[in-house]
Amino acid sequence: MTDQIACTGTDRPTWPAVFAGFRGRCPNCGEGKLLHSYLKVNDSCGKCGEEYVHHQADDGPAYLTILFVGHLMAPLLLMVFETWRPSPLTLFGIFALGCLALSLYLLPRLKGSVVAYQWARRMHGFGNSR
């Protein structure tokens, strides 16, 4: 990858790391995989060897997912209801499926972003790694 995230010395740019984490990539090199299954964080990067065992994402990604999905779907629900007045069962079916799909899409991406943010800010022991 030609646009690797350059992290030499104390320089750890936050936004490139967060975007790499959102893509499920290593916040250090931008190439290795951050997650090895749906929500499991690898112990280290397969490309550059950066260790991820320090991460403490805990419930942060779930809270962020709820925040984003709620703030996107609630106004949309109101707009659809006021504009077209679908039956309650149709409205529930569409928005339940939409909320589920959006939540499943965002959760691993937000977990990668949280871990990458912790790495970029040297939180929870990430400052001692390479």
Rank of each mutant, 00 (worst) to 15 (best):
S129N: 09
Y63I: 15
W119D: 07
G49S: 03
P86A: 07
A62D: 10
T14E: 06
G93H: 06
C26D: 02
T2D: 13
G60R: 12
M73Y: 13
C29G: 02
G112C: 11
A116G: 13
G21L: 04
H36D: 15
T65Y: 07
M79Q: 08
Y117M: 12
V53A: 11
L100D: 01
I94F: 15
S103E: 06
A120H: 13
Y52N: 12
D43P: 08
R12E: 04
A116M: 13
R121I: 12
S129H: 09
A116C: 10
M123I: 14
E50M: 13
T14D: 04
P108R: 00
M123P: 03
T8H: 11
H55R: 01
C99V: 08
G93K: 08
W15N: 01
P108H: 01
L72R: 04
G112T: 12
R109K: 12
S87T: 15
I66Q: 14
T65R: 07
L67P: 05
Y38N: 00
Y63D: 11
H71Q: 10
C29P: 02
A20C: 05
H36W: 12
A20R: 06
A96E: 07
C26Q: 02
F22A: 01
R85A: 14
C48V: 02
T83L: 12
R85M: 09
L91S: 07
F81P: 00
V114M: 12
G125W: 05
L107E: 02
D11F: 11
A57G: 10
L91I: 05
V53I: 13
S129K: 03
K33R: 07
G24L: 05
D43E: 12
P86V: 09
L77P: 03
D3A: 11
G46T: 01
G125R: 08
A17D: 14
L106Q: 00
W84T: 04
G46R: 02
V18Y: 06
G60I: 15
Y117C: 09
V114G: 08
C7M: 14
I94E: 09
K47F: 00
V53L: 10
Q4I: 02
L91V: 05
C48W: 03
P108Y: 03
C29I: 02
F19D: 03
C48P: 03
L106A: 00
P16D: 08
P86G: 08
C48Y: 03
C26G: 00
Q56V: 07
C29N: 02
T14M: 08
L91G: 07
P88N: 06
C29K: 03
W119L: 06
R121K: 15
Y117N: 09
L106F: 03
F126H: 15
P108S: 00
V69D: 10
G30P: 05
L97Q: 02
Y52T: 06
Y38L: 10
I94M: 14
T14Y: 09
L100F: 12
G60W: 08
P88V: 09
E82L: 15
R12M: 04
H71Y: 11
D11C: 01
G93E: 08
Q56S: 11
